[in-house]
Amino acid sequence: MNRITACFDRCLGLGRKVLIPFVTAGDPNREVTVPLMHEMVNAGADLIELGVPFSDPMADGPTIQRSSERALEKNTSIHHVLEMVAIFRQQDAITPVVLMGYLNPIENMGAEHFVAAAVKAGVDGVLTVDLPPEEGEEFEQFCEQHDLAPIYLLAPTSTEARIGKIARSARGFIYYVSVKGVTGSQVPDVAEVAAKIETIRQQSKLPIGVGFGIRDAASAAAIGGCADAVVVGSVLVSRMEALQQTPEQIPAAIGGILAEMRKALDEL
């Protein structure tokens, strides 16, 4: 069974909300990422979303764009990201890892080659922000052959017809973008999010993660009240930006933020 499905089965079976941190691989340097991944798991993360840096991240806000720029300044390529996952896997065979990024670096490597290499490195899912299912048929076939989960976003603007289409293409879990906006934008309206989640559940049995705009334990708990998983990114990435001159302090600082969120989610 794919590690993502196993993770959701295990957590939800225990009544545990799935906590998903996002960090950009290679930010602020390539040495930080793997120790940081382990520390995040120790602090209560259940699944890790690892950003693959891209020069033109048009769906991301300034915080995550700057993290991409820092990673690219250190020449972090998609090959390095796969190496990091392989090293992480030497000590952690359970925590699922989902890569999040844009299509061009994947196409540059060759989509099929990328999928095979990602699975070999221990990647469990891929969220390609600018690859909607309409253009993703071939990519989905490669994913299916290699048991890599294509993760898709749904947004407040997604129509019922699109929810149905994405429900058929998605594997692992569905990532609901809680606000109209880029990463790191305003706090979502929890009632609106809950209503949309109910609409999605009518068309998909997959667990639903919610992200964009979750910045502390309170907002994590609010969203955790209606979603199966909470994705937290920009707040971690801005903390890392503040600590970029002292990268050795990053794992503990990020672990601290996640531990608070973990506690709030467990008290639900």
Partner: peptide
């Protein structure tokens, strides 16, 4: 769907698909 041969198409984030 906006294809000129193999080129073009819609490679956009989900929020923009409806607009």
């Amino acid at each position: 769907r906006g294809h000129f041969g193999v080129y073009g198409g819609i490679f956009a984030p989900e929020t923009l698909m409806a607009p």
